[in-house]
């Protein structure tokens, strides 16, 4: 019978692999520049993929944590009794999609995807990100 520590490390590896493969999968979305899984209670990243030498995804994660918090607080203040499905921020040359995780084990986390506006298909990217979010097991 395996020791409990072996079971634990096995599970840990499986989870990390799942997170890594989800991030890698997201980078195959057309026009993807970078993706991050972020904890909005602290602003820290659980994982990142992509990015460029100019774009530090950990900085983006910390900054967008404030965006997510502000929107959630607003929804609460308006007593809408609803959740954010996703957020789209359109820049001159990029799309940023923020998608809070809905599963019980994803509480307090969001996915942050940066896309190049010219190389991406927004509807398809949004759909792909939803699929990735649904399949993501932590």
């Amino acid at each position: 019978m395996p020791l409990s520590s072996e079971i634990f490390s096995f599970n840990l590896e499986r989870h990390v692999a799942n997170l890594d493969s989800a991030l890698k999968d997201a980078m195959t979305i057309d026009g993807a520049i970078g993706i991050a899984l972020v904890d909005y209670t602290s602003g820290m990243t659980l994982g990142v993929a992509g990015g460029t030498p100019e774009i530090d995804l950990t900085v983006a994660a910390a900054g967008n944590t404030d965006v997510v918090r502000a929107k959630m607080r607003t929804i609460e203040m308006l007593k809408l009794n609803d959740d954010i499905e996703d957020m789209l921020i359109t820049l001159g040359s990029q799309y940023h999609i923020i998608r809070p995780l809905n599963g019980s084990n994803g509480k307090g986390l969001f996915l942050y995807l940066m896309l190049s506006k010219t190389r991406s298909n927004l509807a398809l990217a949004r759909h792909r990100l939803r699929t990735i979010e649904e399949q993501l097991e932590l």
């Binding site: 602003g43 910390a62 944590t65």
Partner: peptide, 8 residues
Amino acid sequence: INVARLHL
């Protein structure tokens, strides 16, 4: 506090 922002 956004502790990641503080650390940056």
